[in-house]
Structure formats: C-alpha cells, structure tokens
Design a protein around this nucleic acid. Structure first.
Length: 225
DNA sequence: AAGTCTCGCAACCGCGACGTT
DNA sequence: CAACGTCGCGGTTGCGAGACT
C-alpha cells in the first residue's frame, strides 16, 4: 500500500463522503479558495490540504463540465497534446470546464488508444512502425488488447518523453498527410479570461505559457479551437 | 450463476516551482 | 542569497463496475 501523503494520523483517506463535500463547498463559498494548508482545520475537515484542493478542483468546482467529451473537445486535446506534450494543466485550460485530471484520464483511457489504432505513436504523434496502422486491424486489435494501456505498461520516464513537446510539434506535417480528417493546424495563445475563468488559472497559466512556449519575442502562438 | 479480467475514474504521492523570511 | 513553507503538476495506484469466460 501507499505511504500516507501526510504524517497526520487523524486524517481521512480515500473517497469523500457527502458531508465532507458539503463542508468543503460551504467553506470555499464563504471564504474562497486558497490557503489549502489551513483550510481543512478551518472547515472542520479531517483531510490534508492537498486532498481538499484536489477534491475541489477535480470534482466540486461549480464551473466544471462533467460527462462525455465532445468530438471537437477530443480533437482539441489531441492537437494540444501534440503541441504541449503531457502538460495537462495547460491542455485542460482550453476545453472549458475540464480539469487536468479529467483530461489526463481521458487521454490515457480513450485518446491514447484511439491514436494507436490510427497508427500514431501517442507519445510523439508520429506515424509509428511499432504501432498498428489503420489498415491493419489484426495488429490494431492485438495492440489494444495486449497491454498497451496504462495499466499493463506504464509510461517509462525518459529524456525523450520530457522533450516530446518540440518533437511532437515537429512532426505535424507527417500527421496532416496521414490524417486528413484531423486538423492539426494548431498554435497556442494565452487563454482568454472568458475561457479560463479562474483567477488561479490566469495567475499560473499566463506566465507559464509565455515562459515555456515562447522561444522568442516573435513567436506569439495563437490557438484556434 | 459465479469467478476472473479489464477498464475508467477518483484519489494519492513525490517533486519541482514559487513566494516569503 | 539561502532556507523554509506552500502550492500545483504530472505520474501512479486502488477500487468499483461492467464485460467476459
């Protein structure tokens, strides 16, 4: 089993009860987000601050859009992943009302496999000889059912993985040729306030985007959803 | 019908980034 | 400028539900 995330013996773990949810909602409605370290005690919750923050962001926030991803959302996520790699918080900033955790889970459980079935390496969005091609249903079936999911073969961390952003971006031409139905003409801009509604997101995404994705002053990237 | 397997979601953990002192 | 504390992100895991045998 896991080691506890914090040393406190008297903190609850695992699934949240309705009462806990309500306490957290009530407290944040009254006092706003932030100061997660002290929030649990102030709200009367036997949870660590991290757990409260995660629960609020991923589940309780009122502006969350739950349910199935639309096709245009899928496309957008694929495009953004090609451009950004596993920067889920940045990717989640674009489809409104989605969380990084939700996008990450959806990628790992659906989109990854979808790309694999299309013959695309989901790690770098290149056409891959190691992955089944669209016209090869036998290998496609084998790949999807034989451990290419995140459970059987968790992603191995490597230098290449960390560098996949530029790598993936450099292969967009290949993808266009291979996937005429998938518009990969994508670029990035700082999220609009109307899309990225939270102050928190603005605070953190803006500098991050400009710092990480703008190699030079002229490289302002515009994202069309 | 019962047992086993697979999948997806929610939650946890470690670590790096950032702010404060 | 180093030390410390907090926050946020990404990777990973556990568990329940549904599919399969």
């Amino acid at each position: 089993m896991r080691k506890p995330c914090c040393d406190k013996q008297d903190t609850n773990k695992g699934a949240w009860s309705k009462q806990e949810d309500q306490k957290l909602i009530d407290y944040i409605r009254k006092n706003g987000e932030g100061c997660w370290r002290t929030l649990p005690q102030a709200a009367g919750l036997l949870r660590c601050g991290k757990s409260c923050r995660l629960r609020w962001i991923n589940y309780l926030r009122p502006d969350l859009k739950r349910g199935d991803f639309a096709e245009d959302e899928e496309d957008l996520i694929i495009k953004l992943h090609a451009l950004l790699g596993n920067r889920w918080s940045l990717i989640a900033g674009r489809p409104p009302g989605r969380t990084d955790n939700e996008v990450k889970n959806y990628w790992n459980s659906h989109l990854r496999r979808k790309l694999i079935n299309m013959g695309i390496d989901p790690n770098n969005h290149r056409l891959s000889h190691n992955f089944p091609r669209p016209r090869d249903p036998c290998t496609a079936a084998t790949a999807t059912s034989s451990g290419l999911n995140n459970h059987a073969s968790p992603p191995v961390k490597s230098v290449g993985d960390n560098d996949q952003t530029s790598d993936a971006g450099s292969c967009l031409d290949d993808n266009r040729r291979a996937l005429p139905d998938l518009n990969l003409d994508v670029a990035i801009t700082i999220p609009q306030p109307s899309v990225d509604t939270t102050e928190e997101a603005k605070k953190h995404n803006e500098p991050k985007v400009s710092r990480e994705l703008e190699p030079g002053p002229s490289s302002t990237l515009l994202l069309f959803g």
